[in-house]
Design a protein around this nucleic acid. Structure first.
Lengths: 150, 150, 150, 150
DNA sequence: TTTT
DNA sequence: TTTT
């Protein structure tokens, strides 16, 4: 291919504290959902309308995963750059499903905190430490990382 | 929300000629899939690896839908800007499914042709006129447009 | 040219209240400077270093000029998209000079307020109404707008 | 600063072969000018108008400097991401001047070739090897690199 | 599930 | 001239 670009730029707010996991190889993986909101005037009704879009974000970049684990909490506003990736998985009924995620791959992507908070480590509304779980055994895992659930 | 951004920037090649449809309101809607390719060196094996990502693109912007219908053909390289939108639909088994698309909404988005071709309308590898179908009847349609299939 | 893109994306803080002017054609033009900050670890000294970059922003887009006039004030944090434009001017000594600006042209660009303030119109640190001046007579004006000074 | 973003995205064509220099520290620095073209309908005259914008690009990122040296030639179309940087210099008359550049800093930025050419090293319209000069002695240089001229 |  |  003669060169391609796959870039997503989001500014939004986290719906929950990020989830922190380890890959089988021992790398930290941080995931969360990010809300963006689009507002427009409906031309038919003339009403002001709003639509919230939820984005699944997964961070493989070590440095940014550390930043995310330490400073991101539910409600925080963040700027990020990643790329679109759709992965296939099989649901409990054996059906193929697809999920599209915004991925900050190793050595790639950007993450910038936009709202200044007193101290992301300690406090207040944003203070609950994000849950950390061991990676589940990866039976039949074909993706770049063990099953990520939101 | 204190301001949000939902932006996708892609440079890639069309997998097929675009599909042109009409909304119930009579607006032209153009959709296609776009391939981007990511290459990297696998750190474990040291091998050069490549992954092609397929993006579903839907254009509601009238002006850009016209450009897309006239000039985009299978294989053409294009730069575009849109926003991420995930819509819910129900499959034939009654199961809820989600599809994420890159949407160029009314009065929004960008579309730029990157490879110069003699004439998108007439010729060669890119010449087949894109299929145009009437919009299907919209039973139970809740999304912003009648079911879009790729 | 086979398609080109000229896009700037900035998130930063206004150095001063915006300046509002009118073009000869009666269109509102809003301009301001925006600070972005880059921090990095100096590899030689190991020290943490910071560099502030100042960007000249000019808004010709009517809708966004209105938003900027009403809500932007010194210190506010904003996300914007524009394009790079370098214009030539002649200094008092008759020397040719060049100034590069981030331009939000008519019907183009984006502007999103990122920090929520109680009320941009009334208050506090951000409250001073931006200065509004009549456009100066445009003798010898060759650019897209009468001389813009920061 | 509560997080900032300084990003430029360009798709354009090189005006000349790139110039390759070495910093005092022995790092390769590649610079060139890139043309983007904006076309619009003049609302007063109704005429189609076009404006070409020239951007000064400087690459400090080692990996991308290598790619640029090897593959970029006059006329080639490229996608790149960098950040805006304005540096001050003194002209021969002792006057302070400012030049704004699109900088791909160390470990940052993106560069993607968009038009496929048989072989950037050998051939045809794009074939002239880029000039390589030793860095000039850096008397009084205060910027991040010895004087860059286009 | 966020935010205004 | 901003911001942390």
């Amino acid at each position: 291919m003669a060169g391609s670009v796959n870039k997503v730029i989001l500014v939004g707010n986290l719906g929950k504290d990020p989830e922190v996991r380890m890959s089988q190889a021992g790398a930290k993986i941080v995931s969360f959902t990010l809300a963006t909101s689009d507002t427009w005037n409906d031309r038919a009704s003339g009403e002001r309308r709003e639509r919230t879009e939820w984005h699944r974000v997964v961070i493989f970049n070590d440095r940014l995963a550390d930043v995310a684990e330490r400073f991101l909490r539910k409600g925080r506003q963040v700027y990020l750059e990643g790329s679109l990736q759709t992965r296939k998985w099989t649901d409990q009924g054996g059906q193929e499903r697809y999920t599209t995620e915004v991925v900050l791959a190793a050595f790639r992507g950007e993450l910038t905190l936009l709202d200044s908070r007193p101290d992301g480590e300690t406090g207040g509304q944003y203070g609950a430490a994000p849950e950390r779980r061991q990676a589940a055994p990866a039976y039949g895992n074909t993706g770049p990382v063990d099953e990520i659930s939101f």
